[in-house]
Design a protein around this nucleic acid. Structure first.
Lengths: 334, 334
DNA sequence: AATTAGCAGTCGAGAGAGGAGAGTGCTAAC
DNA sequence: GTTAGCACTCTCCTCTCTCGACTGCTAATT
């Protein structure tokens, strides 16, 4: 994947992408010479440029224009020119400290913060709840022939529902509680939902309760399944890309297609940071890029935070914000 | 407010708005004659048009163009030409039945449905929870020195939190439950939060619990306070208005400003349906309009559903969808 | 073989001119 | 009050032209 480029080609490519990221105009050979490579002539740079174009890194809008990076160039740029040490975590930290009082606030408003700090549209996805572990299931007597079902998990009570009790026997609730606890406690949501529970015939009296509880879990899973929040969709208008109608339309369309976004954010196994650029890998992000990071609380993956914006985005800044935030959240212990 | 217009002026105005709503092009005198008033000459219509323009109902983009409705014209149109009988509730009902299995589904996906059915961007706002009534407050023993606080309201359990018990006395939880029930049951959220509770000195042992519960209620209120969901923001691209950069930018900006939208949706005392058009009343909706309706479940106001789109929107259709939906939801008794 | 200066060639952006078409306002007649 | 007729205005489109920005190529240089 990582094609070999001569040292000078690398410098030219980096110069071009850097320039383009800040100016958003096609970059000419003399632009590069002036600001990045004064020791060689524009003719030399031109020959390098045409070589890089042949290799697919650059695009020439028309013959008398400068060059613009292709998706392949952005990919190379992200993979090779952004090194961790570059990323200014301290500045980020300072920024966040200045703006937010507590870490809890930062998690809660994650999407807003990312959008503010990067000035791009941000995405917050809550992970599916497959690995959620049930701590206990309890019935709370409501003294009117019904009871409240509580499912207590390692991250709070997740669902409640009143159910009618089939009997008013004194100790029914107590027995049910014991039984429910035995069956569910310590197991994950997906374990429970994927196994079929066969009750001993003597426990038939609790059948209804069991089914109710399992229904509740199913409903909950469905309702939480990868919720996605979008913040700052209008940020695109801060960038000159938005002058182009199709760009804006594509952008807004994809930002509205939550299913597509979820797919884009979730399909890389165990990579912590993912960068999708342009139309590569069938991502369908023409002229756009999506950067996303998984985040954890107390070691458990709870979701992903991401940024979507023009292909020519400030990757350094975005990665810096996401990296720092994910560290911050991970350290969290409420 | 309702200026007196001659019968013919009304017809001309209605014809013009109708035409414009479907064609999105300036309407000429002959357009109106052909399709709406063949019994008079174009010259007559022209003189009516120039009169209506003087009165502020119409705008002429330039001297050799037709006319376009002003915000005032849309306002007049909505107030005078859309009568309830027009609204095709049956078609709406059929549409909803065809697409959704249950009413519950309709409520849950309210925003999506409105956006689909109208083909405009929809807004769903959940009402503030001031009138939420507490049915009971309970502590559930977790058998590890802590208890779970449950606040049961007329619309479900709203918050849970583990708190540490100050003592492990046998009957502490039971007494606390009784006391909490007495203090909170049957009162609304805002009543509780606005009064300062002074505990008898003998009940000091429960002080901490009380404060925790009140904190929880406050947090809950804050978290629910007018949440706003936007669905289908990209629908704007289905309309020719989106060809204009500023229109799109304004639209997206306002759709991103949730605070502003909440304000626009909530500030009319007890009107069930509200229509805001263009920049009138300082709404800041240049070239846009917002239609919203309150909705109730079992008589209690639970939120508002709305539509935001081009000023030239299909008011009939939008009002029809919102009206029907609100009736449907109100009848709900799950 | 790599680099460079010089130059011809290409293309887009923008300005200006001109013509067609649409729709109006006005006037005079009914 | 209504109408036909007509002159007038203004946008939109197309065509043409020029200017300027860059490039690619060639031939000379190191």
């Amino acid at each position: 994947m990582d094609e070999k480029l001569t040292e000078r080609k690398k410098r030219v490519l980096q110069a071009l992408v850097d320039s383009y990221i800040s100016s958003v105009e096609p970059i000419s050979s003399s632009d590069i010479q002036k600001r990045y490579l004064p020791e060689v002539s524009t003719a030399t740079i031109r020959s390098e440029l045409s070589h890089l174009e042949e290799m697919g890194y650059l695009i020439q809008p028309h013959v008398s224009a400068g060059r613009v990076p292709s998706s392949k160039a952005y990919r190379y740029y992200v993979d090779n020119f952004i090194i961790d040490e570059d990323i200014d975590l301290d500045a980020m930290k300072e920024y966040l400290n200045r703006k937010y009082d507590s870490v809890a606030e930062i998690v809660k408003d994650g999407a807003k913060i990312v959008s503010d700090a990067t000035n791009y549209t941000s995405l917050l996805m809550i992970s599916s709840s497959d690995t959620l572990t049930i701590k206990d299931v309890k019935l709370v007597d409501m003294y009117d022939g019904s009871a409240l079902v509580l499912i207590i998990t390692d991250s709070g009570v997740i669902k409640d529902k009143e159910i009618k009790l089939p009997t008013s026997e004194e100790n029914y609730i107590e027995s049910a509680n014991t039984l429910l606890g035995k069956c569910f406690a310590g197991r994950t949501l997906s374990q429970i939902l994927s196994t079929h529970v066969d009750l001993d015939s003597e426990l038939k009296a609790f059948k209804q309760i069991f089914e109710d509880v399992i229904d509740l879990l199913g409903e909950y899973k469905k309702s939480r399944e990868g919720q996605l929040y979008v913040e700052g969709a209008d940020k695109i208008f801060d960038y000159p890309e938005s002058k182009n109608y199709d760009n804006v339309k594509n952008f807004m369309t994809i930002v509205g297609r939550k299913e597509k976004l979820k797919e884009l954010m979730s399909d890389d196994g165990n990579i912590e940071f993912s960068v999708k650029i342009g139309a590569e890998e069938g991502a369908g992000l023409e002229n756009m890029a999506l950067v996303s990071a998984k985040y954890h609380i107390k070691g458990r993956e709870v979701g992903q935070l991401g940024v979507i914006g023009p292909e020519r985005m400030d990757y350094k800044k975005v990665l810096s914000v996401l990296k720092h935030l994910s560290k911050l959240i991970d350290k969290l212990d409420d």
